Structure formats: structure tokens, C-alpha cells
Amino acid sequence: MGIFDKFKSHARNKGKQGSDTAEQQMNERTGGKYEDQIDTGQQRIEGSLGMDRDRDRPDQQ
């Protein structure tokens, strides 16, 4: 694993942590009333940024 791969992985992990924290805070503020909508929004944003949850799995070839 090269230095750029390590940096990319670290940045992706930080981005996901921030996204998860934001989702948790919004759910707390709304009392969980809009949990499904918030989760859908989070998935769309992460997908558009290339941070899909499925990308964590290694390629199976």
C-alpha cells in the first residue's frame, strides 16, 4: 500500500465519521421522526462523493 493509498483511506474514513456524526445529530434533534429520510439522504451524498458503504469490501475476483 503506497502513501497515497493510505492518505485516501484515511480521508475516506474521516469523511464517513463526519457523515455518521451528522446523521446521528439530526436524528437526535428530530427525535428519530425522519430517520429513514436522513439515512436515504446520507446514502445519496456518500454515493455522489464515492464513499459508498459497499466500497469497503475488497473486490471479489
Rank of each mutant, 00 (worst) to 15 (best):
Q25P: 00
Q61L: 08
D54H: 05
G50P: 02
Y34M: 15
F7C: 12
N13K: 13
Q43L: 03
K8P: 02
T40M: 04
G32K: 12
G31P: 04
E28K: 08
R55V: 07
K6F: 01
Q42D: 10
G50R: 05
M1W: 09
G47H: 01
G41A: 03
D5L: 11
M26C: 07
R44K: 10
D39G: 07
I45G: 01
I3F: 07
G50N: 07
E46R: 13
N27I: 09
I38P: 01
A11W: 03
D20N: 11
S19P: 03
G47D: 03
R29H: 01
Q43H: 04
L49T: 04
E35S: 15
T21H: 12
T21K: 14
K8L: 06
G15A: 15
Q17A: 07
M26H: 08
Q17T: 07
A22T: 15
R55D: 12
I3S: 13
G15N: 11
L49M: 11
L49Y: 04
D59W: 03
N27Y: 03
K6N: 08
H10A: 13
P58M: 15
G32V: 10
Q37R: 07
I3L: 13
G2K: 06
L49Q: 09
G18A: 10
S48H: 08
Y34R: 15
G50Y: 01
D5C: 11
E46Y: 00
K8I: 05
I45H: 04
R44F: 00
M1G: 15
A22S: 15
I45N: 03
G15Q: 09
R55K: 08
K33S: 11
Q42I: 04
K8S: 10
R44Y: 01
Q61M: 12
T30D: 12
R53N: 03
D52E: 14
Q24W: 03
Q43C: 01
R12Q: 04
P58C: 06
D54G: 09
Q43I: 05
Q42L: 05
K33G: 04
I45S: 04
S9P: 02
R57N: 08
T40S: 07
G2Y: 02
M26D: 05
Q17E: 09
S48I: 10
G31M: 10
S9R: 14
Q24E: 09
Q61R: 12
E28Y: 01
E28D: 12
D59Y: 08
S9K: 13
K33Q: 11
P58R: 15
P58E: 15
E23W: 00
K14C: 01
K16W: 02
I3H: 14
A22E: 15
D20E: 12
N13A: 10
Q24C: 02
Q37V: 00
R44W: 01
M1A: 14
F4C: 13
G50F: 01
R29V: 02
A11R: 12
Q42S: 12
K33V: 11
D52W: 00
A22F: 09
K33E: 08
E23H: 04
D52S: 13
N13Y: 03
R57S: 14
Q17R: 11
R29L: 06
M26L: 15
R12Y: 00
K33F: 05
G32W: 04
E46S: 05
Q37S: 03
Q61G: 12
D52T: 05
G32L: 09
A11P: 00
H10Q: 14
G41H: 00
F4R: 14
D54Q: 10
K6D: 08
K6T: 10
L49C: 06
